[in-house]
């Protein structure tokens, strides 16, 4: 993929030197530390649920909308889930207008799989009439400022927006969704709260939550989504081979870090 901008060489060298000493460029404690996470609810009153998530200077907006549609033929008694992500040109000099590039498609798909496979949304409860009508949950992710790690921010945004989302009222006789009129009913969720942690290999170091400059040096990213120690999805990205022992270490790091992040997020979502 073409890179419009890359981390300047002197910065790159400095970052890598810091990593060798277990230090970060932005004076974070260590290689496995996240930046500060901020979750702000209700960024759009028109959405069924919406949030702003910041990790350091990275910011995403995530909205949940619902609509009634036909179920997929292979899941007649289940609601549908659709996750899309857009990397807005306003959020970085690196992003360009036009149809979604591969990075945005991957961002949406990896987030989708992590949430879907964890079973966080109880899709069976979103069935209105088996084989005919089910709720579709749309989760739309937009980057507002990209300072690295949009991947992990997206899942945090998605679960936060889902947690606050209410189902719109539905006129069964007319078969019409009364958009703008929300019921008191929450989107049916389980306690399988998925947390995505991306581990990056840069030089000989494994790090999490990269800034833009760090992420541009990433040779390989492995994103693991887990809930309570169960891994529900994994995606290795980029053309960089990993030794088996490195991959196994990455599993352990993601579990370790996700426990900390889960605690932090749970306290913010109360």
């Amino acid at each position: 993929m073409d890179k419009i901008m890359t981390t300047p060489e002197p910065t790159a060298e400095r970052i890598k030197e810091y990593f060798k000493e277990g230090k970060r460029f932005d004076e974070r404690g260590g290689l496995l530390d996240f930046r500060k996470i901020i979750i702000e609810k209700n960024v759009s009153k028109k959405a069924e649920g919406s949030v702003r998530v910041k990790i350091g200077n990275t910011e995403v907006l995530v909205g949940v909308k619902l609509d009634v549609s036909a179920p997929y033929p292979d899941s007649l008694n289940k609601g549908n889930l659709m996750v899309t992500a857009e990397m807005l040109p306003l959020s970085s000099p690196r992003f360009e207008s036009g149809p979604p590039g591969f990075d945005a498609i991957e961002l949406g798909r990896v987030t989708d799989r992590g949430i879907r496979e964890s079973g966080f949304i109880d899709l069976e409860k979103l069935c209105i009439k088996e084989g005919e009508k089910v709720w579709t949950v749309f989760i739309d992710i937009y980057s507002i400022n990209d300072d690295g790690n949009l991947m992990d921010a997206s899942t945090i945004g998605a679960i936060a927006a889902l947690k606050m989302a209410k189902i719109p009222k539905y006129d069964e006789e007319k078969g019409k969704v009364l958009f703008g009129e929300l019921s008191d009913e929450n989107v049916p969720l389980t306690n399988h709260l998925p947390i995505a942690i991306s581990v990056h290999k840069i030089g000989n170091s494994l790090i999490v939550d990269p800034t833009r400059e760090e992420e541009e040096l990433s040779e390989c990213r492995v994103t693991l989504t887990n809930y309570g120690g169960i891994i529900s999805s994994l995606q290795k990205s980029n053309s960089r081979a990993l030794e088996i022992h490195e991959m196994k270490r990455i599993f352990e790091i993601s579990e370790e870090v996700s426990k900390k992040i889960l605690k932090e997020i749970e306290s913010r979502l109360k």
Binding site: R113, V222, K236, A241, K248
Partner: peptide, 26 residues
């Protein structure tokens, strides 16, 4: 994997713990 045992691609969908995932790689 490469023939000398390096991982060049890996994905996962489902539910699995860390230890068993390590076994899966082997």
């Amino acid at each position: 994997m490469t023939d000398d045992g390096k991982i060049t691609h890996m994905q996962l969908d489902g539910k699995i713990g860390v230890t068993q995932l390590q076994e899966a790689v082997d």
